[in-house]
Design a protein around this nucleic acid. Structure first.
Lengths: 109, 109, 109, 109
DNA sequence: ACCGTGGTTAGCTTTC
DNA sequence: GAAAGCTAACCACGGT
């Protein structure tokens, strides 16, 4: 379950990011190049953080499947059910949108 | 999950899936089949909730890329940097594992 | 191999697939549908041939692992080494690509 | 660029393999440890070579799919066809084996 | 012999 | 609309 972990940049990370800045620079957007660099670094770190969380959720999901399997459920079937339900929800959403369009078209909005 | 559960799809939701559900049951594990059903439902709902969160994180990430792009950064470069950093970490992990194998092999465990 | 071309299946080769074939046709690209059919058949046979070769290589690899194992080597370790070497190469490739991106960014291309 | 641990090295792959040998050794199988090391190295290189070929075939296959797609065929359908044919071949093979068993059972071999 | 794990492949989404 | 990156399903291997 969502360990903090990863502890990204050990010691060498900084080098990477600094080099990076040089290239990714939106030239001359900031008075000071360091400001821009900091900004890029911030973006990257935010993304990395979110991806970590995302992947942790993936782990959690896998865990639940494992638990269910241990209880005797067939995970393949479970996946199929979940996929179908998602499709169904999506389908309904689109139908609703279509309905809205219709209503708008005939001045019922 | 206010969805009337199975009521799955319109035309293609054939017996297939219904049979499947039945089959997925760990037969006779509970005194009452409904208990098992409830349990399955619970698993599925937990997974669906987590997948929603996961997908929301994906949206967030996309947003950040968009923001960075709007600021003038090149997202392709950003993605490559992030990937490279991830590979770095992964590689180190693998190296450590290999080292463990070596140590075990010579009785240093 | 000697399976003669399409001559698909015995019992389970139902309409499903037949419809599919029809659908897969790039309609009206050829004067004669048979020409198109022949072309599809040719693609499929070429792919099947390559997949056979690919799978034969898989067998060969497995054999070598088996041989090494028989000689006393630990296949798990071997696999990890091979994986690590592959990652190494991949990482270097990515670094080069990143460098190219940088160079392009500062007009050094 | 910050290598840490193990120091897998960039251009001197050989070192890698040699370190490896130490761990993977089938102890005392050869009079000379170098002989064993050479042997391991040879296994690994053979495998790497085969995997390269395998992956090249994968590329070729992808290419053909691309070509077919460019011509207007639906690759998803093509994949399905190929999968079905493979299953069919496999099925026939197993049926033949079964038949052989039968024949042997009644002394018809 | 089975289970669990890891690796490979295919399909999907998104990007350019 | 092509190309790539991501995710999910499948398969094969090793361990128990």
């Amino acid at each position: 379950m969502s360990e903090s972990s990863v502890e990204m940049a050990d010691d060498n990370m900084d080098d990477d990011v600094k080099e990076t800045n040089v290239a990714a620079f939106p030239t001359g957007t900031d008075g000071d190049v360091n400001v821009t660099g900091k900004r890029l670094q911030s973006y990257i770190e935010r993304i990395e953080r979110l991806e970590e969380e995302k992947s942790a959720l993936g782990e959690d999901i896998k865990e639940i499947y494992g638990e269910a399997k241990g209880f005797g459920f067939d995970t393949k079937t479970m996946r199929k059910i979940i996929r179908l339900r998602k499709m169904e929800i999506e389908k309904r959403r689109e139908e609703d949108e279509l309905l809205e369009l219709y209503k708008a078209a005939i001045g019922m909005e």
